[in-house]
Nucleic acid binder design. Structure first.
Length: 282
DNA sequence: ATGAATACCTGAGAGC
DNA sequence: TGCTCTCAGGTATTCA
């Protein structure tokens, strides 16, 4: 499940393998992967033919390849992978889009669940118009922590819901939200309005911390032929304290980790370290 | 402003 | 074995 660290690993891979190359041809194998390119698949492929890739940028879980005046905007969704492979390699089962590059290699977009996709944006090489509503992520040098704290505390909602709101802070998904909350000893339903400033500061520090640790580990499993990535940063197996740990003893206090239904998914938490607030909110 | 529900997807696994 | 059901999850959209 790619969240910000996994997407950043992909961005770095693209930066080293694709920037400076030219796309000679684009092939859409499944139109659902370009459904957000409103002008249609033919326009998508036409727009990419014979285009030089000049850079790769990222905001939250979105990344985009800069093509002079346009941007090839990508989201990995739940299961997206970018693979750098030789053309003779057999097609992957869930191959959706192929980009032929002028060095003879192919950049392949493989995505089992098709929650991800690509589109060509005609405006906004620095920030595509389609994602202007996405907030800066906490690893962005221009992320404004004080502004985040102010906006967070103005809300009347649960802290986890706020963390997952990409318009408030981007790049945080279910896994890192639970991990950062566990580290901060905050229950997911804590009312944002009642959070103390030090609690917000701690939470933000832990969001950054957990992401940077994942980034370090994900960045080490790099293969020259793979831009990476399947979302496995290697982080999931070893370093999770809360997410997916239902019934297992908390690493701090040994109380069994609980799982609650939350926003059509799950929230994992320690009943001792992260006590449920009396007046909590979702 | 906030949130609840829904749609978009595949495949693994459970239960019968 | 094969069917149906549930679950995993990010984001856009629509409605309350």
């Amino acid at each position: 499940m790619p969240e910000l660290p996994e997407v950043e690993v992909v961005r770095r891979g693209l930066d080293s393998h694709v920037v400076g190359r030219r796309i000679t041809r684009a092939t859409v194998h499944d139109v659902r992967s370009v459904r957000r390119h409103l002008a249609g698949p033919a326009d998508f492929t036409d727009s990419l033919t014979d285009r030089a890739v000049t850079g790769v940028a990222r905001r939250g879980k979105y990344l985009w390849m800069q093509l002079d005046d346009d941007a090839l905007l990508c989201h990995l969704g739940m299961s997206g992978q970018m693979l750098m492979v030789r053309p003779e390699a057999p097609a992957e089962k869930h191959l959706r889009i192929t980009l032929d590059l002028d060095d003879g290699m192919q950049l392949r977009f493989v995505d089992q669940r098709i929650f991800g996709g690509m589109l060509v944006s005609r405006e906004g090489v620095e920030l595509p118009a389609e994602i202007v509503h996405i907030a800066r992520d906490p690893l962005d040098p221009l992320f404004d922590a004080e502004d985040f704290r102010t906006r967070l505390r103005k809300r009347r909602t649960g802290v986890k819901r706020a963390l997952l709101d990409q318009g408030l802070i981007s790049g945080v998904g279910n896994i890192y939200a639970d991990e950062a909350l566990w580290r901060s000893r905050l229950h997911y339903a804590r009312d944002t309005h009642n959070l103390r400033a030090p609690e917000v500061a701690l939470l933000l520090a832990n969001v950054v911390g957990v992401m940077n640790e994942a980034l370090e580990k994900g960045g080490t499993s790099f293969d020259a032929l793979y831009v990476n990535v399947n979302g496995d940063s290697g982080y999931f197996d070893r370093s999770l304290n809360a997410y997916g740990q239902e019934g297992l003893p908390c690493d701090r206090c040994s109380t069994p980790i609980r799982r609650d239904a939350f926003m059509n998914r799950s929230a994992f938490w320690c009943p001792t370290c992260q006590p449920r607030p009396r007046n909590g909110r979702w």
